[in-house]
């Protein structure tokens, strides 16, 4: 459910790398372009240019990693949820994220990369995931705000991905989007309940919104003008709507929701523009965003360490399952002999 709408180079920081001129077979390339132009779909066994494959592997695996790492900030609250009902809901949501990660890893595997390779990329810190998870979830309202705003932003990003030109990715996104709306609604509803509570509870909601609002706007990626890879993604039908357009849609959809909830969005420049028929909003701090992408956010190290520990702690389970299967196979062979 969580994606940074753009695909950050895994060696982020070195931006604006010049496009490599195509050395692909022109005949195959023409057939591929024609299919994309006709809004057709590319399937795993079809010929595709190397750069298309690489872009997809990077984007889908980053998306998968984001789902998996996204389980951590919310997982912290499972044992602290304020009621059994909220706890059951949160467990279901976190379980969904795990499932979404799996749909996406499977889609990436169809491009010829292995699960182990992708996990190795994540665990070594080489591969990126959505920066939003490198911020802490300090109070219970953060869990609600993650559902309302973070998942809300993710939905904006993901709906157009359901029409992505790569078949397995678009099918995975259809499945993800079906499950996603529960995530946003449960978050918003949890906040509505808090807003009917004490002054202190309302202050918690406002505090969480203040801390997360700008990070959510950054989730859509750099402005179109600074997003050199976007045009190629659009050309290939991987990206359908530009970063700025999606961000605007998100702002326009969120302002009335904030009003109903009774919170303020922390942006003095946020106001309705009659001429544009959209809300204007202030400047996003991209310096801070890139700093977090590059690994220096408040929780980058902790998230990665938790993820690696969980993987290592589960090693004996994976080994035991394999050992059991091998034993069963040997027994079957002996009986057959």
């Amino acid at each position: 459910m969580y994606t940074q709408s753009f695909s950050v180079p895994d060696n982020a920081g070195q931006k604006n790398v010049a496009a490599v001129p195509s050395t692909e077979n022109p005949e195959l390339m023409a057939a591929f372009d024609a299919r994309i132009d006709a809004d057709g779909r590319i399937e795993p066994q079809d010929w595709m240019p190397d750069a298309y494959r690489k872009t997809l592997v990077r984007q889908i695996s980053q998306h998968a990693h984001s789902e998996i790492v996204g389980m951590l900030p919310e997982g912290n609250w499972i044992s602290r949820a304020p009621s059994l009902k909220r706890k059951a809901i949160l467990i279901a949501k976190v379980q969904d994220e795990g499932g979404h990660g799996l749909y996406l890893y499977s889609a990436a595997e169809t491009l010829g990369t292995s699960r182990d390779q992708m996990l190795e990329g994540l665990h070594s810190g080489k591969a990126k995931y959505s920066s939003i998870f490198n911020y802490p979830t300090l109070n219970w309202a953060d869990v609600g705000v993650i559902g309302w705003l973070v998942d809300g932003a993710a939905i904006m990003n993901q709906i157009p991905l359901c029409r992505c030109s790569y078949g397995p990715y678009s099918r995975a996104m259809v499945r993800v989007c079906k499950e996603e709306s529960f995530h946003q609604r449960q978050g918003y509803e949890a906040l509505l309940v808090m807003m009917q509570g004490t002054e202190a509870q309302r202050a918690m909601v406002q505090d969480a919104v203040n801390r997360l609002w700008w990070k959510c706007l950054a989730m859509f990626g750099p402005p179109d003008a600074d997003s050199p890879n976007s045009a190629q993604g659009m050309r290939w039908g991987i990206k359908r709507i530009s970063n700025d357009e999606l961000r605007q849609k998100f702002v326009d959809a969120t302002v009335p929701q904030a009003k109903v909830l009774g919170v303020t969005l922390p942006d003095p420049d946020l106001k309705w523009n009659e001429a544009r028929q959209h809300y204007d909003y202030g400047q996003i701090d991209w310096q801070e965003f890139w700093n977090t992408v590059e690994g220096n956010g408040p929780c980058n190290k902790e998230r990665l360490a938790t993820r690696v520990k969980a993987h290592n702690d589960g090693q004996w389970v994976r080994d035991a399952a394999l050992a059991y299967t091998r034993k069963q196979q040997q027994r079957a062979q002996k009986e057959a002999a």
Partner: peptide, 29 residues
């Protein structure tokens, strides 16, 4: 076996309909 092999998953959504491919996953057996 070195890693969990890949399986294709088919689900019948309701009695009377066919099993339909819905995705894949890794599992030991």
């Amino acid at each position: 076996l070195k890693e969990w092999p890949l399986w294709e998953i088919f689900v019948r959504s309701k009695q009377g309909l066919e099993h339909k491919h819905c995705g894949s996953l890794h599992a030991a057996d």
